[in-house]
Computed example of a mutant assay.
Amino acid sequence: MTERQVAWGILGPGTIANNFAVGLAQTPAAKLLAAGGRTPDRLAAFGERNGVERLYGSYEALVADPDLDVIYVATPHSFHLAHGLLAIEAGKGLMVEKPAGLGARDVEMLVEAARKADVFFMEAYKCRSHPQTVRLVELVREGVIGKLTRIEAKNGGFKERDPSSRLFDPALGGGGILDIGCYPVTTVRLIAGAAQGLPYAEPVALEASGEIGPTGVDEIAEAELDFGDGLTASIACALRRQMEDTLVLTGTKGTIRLPVPWRPGRNAGPSDASIVIETEEGTREEWLRDPRQLFAFEAEAATNAILAGLKTAPWPALSGEESILNARVIDRWREGMGLPVLASALTA
């Protein structure tokens, strides 16, 4: 007897959609059945590269396919709300690439729509589904470095300023915070929660600083977060400054460092990752090895959840409630820099 596979559709056949398609191909219980796009040549190339059976020239036609269980939305940030609602209103489950919306209002609307429609919802933070994240939380909860006092998380690099790029276009949700700063946000919230015996925690205070470029997006962004009980965190991201991708935890008895915290095996496997632990007993390195590509972990988490009849993927993936809270912290970071809190159009 053939086991049931979850039938996936991909909305928006761009670069990250190709990465996710590879992850789906490495998930036995998943099948990439269909894709939809508005650029015929790009859609055809995507279909050929990933062996997609059904190609639709409109998003409406894609979500109307009766054989699909779930849609992965991989369009630019400013379209996530409209395209996510399109999938939900068609009765499909939704995995939406991070950030789920331009602001917390967008995310609230998606989560509430999914709840009312009784369909699956997941915001795709791939680092939250990688095994190193689970192991990191275990180490914090075990008190390996004593009481946690400080978290430092950076994610960035230098890019040429290109006003035609979505990264430098405020109307498309450009800027470092929404594109890559959201990884440090979701991760420090997770770790702070682990230190407090919770699934996640919210900062009681946040102070932001950085540089806004001539196109109106944050090109360099930093923030100091206070989680109370002696635990603080610094987060940073950049589009126009070279930064070492860093995640360092400091406790009363040592430190934990992730050399590749955000994207191990992003484009191809293996997605091997190491955790470096330094205490008074010395330094040791733990390796977590897996031949698969990074996106396979979130694809597997979502697929298994859908097969189990769940409406969200199990922790440490974000629940709908946590996606809202995470977006509120991102809003606070942007507001602290003098940037507007954004809301997406309902149609795109």
Rank of each mutant, 00 (worst) to 15 (best):
R4F: 00
V6M: 03
G9T: 10
T15G: 01
F20N: 14
F20Q: 12
F20S: 12
A21N: 02
A21C: 14
V22L: 12
L24D: 13
A25Y: 09
A25S: 15
T27L: 09
P28Y: 01
P28M: 02
A30T: 04
A30G: 03
K31R: 14
L32P: 12
L33P: 11
G37N: 09
D41H: 01
A45L: 12
A45G: 12
F46T: 14
E48C: 01
R49W: 00
S58R: 12
L62K: 06
A64M: 05
P66D: 07
D69M: 09
V70R: 07
V73S: 11
P76E: 06
P76K: 04
L81R: 12
L81M: 04
L81E: 03
H83A: 01
H83Y: 06
L85T: 13
A87F: 00
A87N: 04
I88Q: 06
I88S: 03
E89K: 08
A90F: 02
G93R: 02
E97H: 11
A100Y: 00
L102W: 02
E108N: 04
M109N: 03
V111T: 02
A113E: 07
V119H: 01
V119P: 08
F120E: 06
M122S: 09
Y125M: 14
C127V: 05
C127R: 15
R128A: 07
P131K: 09
T133P: 08
R135K: 15
L139Y: 01
L139S: 05
L139E: 04
R141E: 15
V144I: 15
G146E: 10
G146A: 10
T149K: 11
G156L: 07
G157D: 08
G157Y: 07
F158R: 11
P163S: 01
P163V: 03
L172F: 07
G173N: 10
G176P: 08
L178T: 03
C182V: 15
T186L: 05
T187D: 05
V188K: 00
G193V: 05
A195Q: 10
L198G: 02
L198I: 05
G210Q: 13
I220A: 01
A223S: 09
E224S: 14
E224Q: 10
D229Q: 14
L231P: 14
T232A: 03
S234M: 10
A236V: 11
C237F: 02
C237P: 06
A238V: 13
M243T: 09
L247Q: 09
L249H: 06
T250I: 10
K253W: 03
P259E: 10
V260K: 05
P261W: 08
P264G: 13
A268T: 10
D272R: 13
A273E: 10
I275S: 02
G282V: 13
R284G: 11
E285W: 01
E285G: 04
E285H: 00
E285I: 15
E285C: 04
W287M: 12
L288P: 11
D290G: 14
D290M: 00
Q293A: 13
Q293G: 04
F295L: 13
F295A: 09
A299Y: 09
A299W: 04
E300K: 14
N304F: 01
I306H: 02
I306C: 04
K311G: 10
A313K: 08
A317P: 12
S319E: 07
E321W: 01
S323N: 00
L325P: 03
N326Q: 13
R328E: 15
R334E: 07
M337L: 15
G338M: 08
L339W: 06
A343S: 10
A343F: 04
A343E: 04
S344Q: 06
S344D: 12
